[in-house]
Design a protein around this nucleic acid. Structure first.
Ligand code: SF4
Ligand code: SF4
Lengths: 161, 161
DNA sequence: ATTAATATAGATCTGTGATATCCATAATAT
DNA sequence: ATATTATGGATATCACAGATCTATATTAAT
């Protein structure tokens, strides 16, 4: 249960793009050098980010990447989902087991009625609840907020001196 | 980024133990049959749960497993951590890269001072924040609360009839 | 005491996915 | 035209989840 390195790289790459937005494009060489990852590998990641409309790619001489939208509209959640996929964190394996009957259909199977929405699986309820809870947090944190915070922190640091 | 099946099994096994607490021990055969998992595999999981003091194991004839503590003191968080391990979900790979300097040491490296606590890495700050946020949620949900909710839901269901 | 039932620990197998590299191709500025 | 840059496919490696089998230790029942 860990975020993949790809996610790590993607976030750092986007932060770098957000930070040097004024300078225009950033080539894979610069990105690769900054992050300390091979160009080949990072290319794959950037490609994914492009396919999902998070960055733009300009091929050819002096090409490179740039953010496809303002940095405050790129949330951590979206980046994570692009790289890690959008599958649910908890997925029920065997809905046919007895256990399922115990937790989800208790009180309804005897009456032979179809499963009620009110009586849904409670394990999934907790886990999906946790997931949604986390999503809310990750949605509120964007590339921009992270960059802003970096500036504020370090400015305070300087002023305190 | 998904919870492992082992976690799934562990949670279900514990819910089963919590539900049939009055009947005493529950053997691996019954658990295995209820969950639809092989005895061998489930044994490993139960063993882990025992090593961390979540269940007790009684070997020998009529042996089996039982909760080592009240069900309201076994949180989802603890079960997940026992099975998945306690490593952080986000772990910085290369603290030596230029990127690190940009985000974490901006404003401090020039002055040649040691890194300030106030100016810590912001990527980790967001990710660890998310982690702690989620932990809080998972700590509040225990085997007991889940069982209770199952009963309440289905009782309401019956009463409404 | 013997036996059957049960949990435990170790070794091992397999498939899958993350990480990573290389190369051929397409697109673009100069 | 040419050099530069991104893209996509193929491939290699490696770790780990998932799973099974076997031998051993422990206990209840006889
Ligand atoms: S109780 Fe829920 S998680 Fe468990 S098998 Fe049924 S649907 Fe799946
Ligand atoms: S900025 Fe943070 S996450 Fe990135 S390399 Fe530095 S310490 Fe690690």
């Amino acid at each position: 249960m860990q975020f993949s390195k790809s996610t790590d790289y993607a976030l750092h790459a986007l932060l770098h793009l957000g930070h040097s937005e004024r300078h225009g494009n950033v080539g894979i060489k610069e990105l690769s050098g900054t992050l300390g990852v091979s160009e080949s590998y990072l290319s794959k990641i950037m490609s994914k980010l492009r396919q999902d409309g998070i960055v733009r790619a300009i091929p050819g001489v002096n090409g490179g990447y740039e953010l496809a939208r303002p940095a405050d509209q790129i949330s951590f959640l979206e980046v994570i989902q692009v790289i890690e996929g959008r599958q649910q964190w908890f997925e029920c394996s065997n809905t046919n087991s007895q256990q399922h009957s115990l937790l989800a259909d208790n009180g309804t199977v005897q009456r032979g009625r179809e499963r009620s929405d009110n009586c849904q699986c409670l394990v999934e309820k907790v886990m999906n609840g946790a997931e949604l809870h986390l999503y809310q947090y990750l949605r509120e944190h964007t590339i921009q907020t992270t960059l802003d915070e970096a500036f504020n922190r370090c400015n305070n640091e300087v002023n305190k001196k």
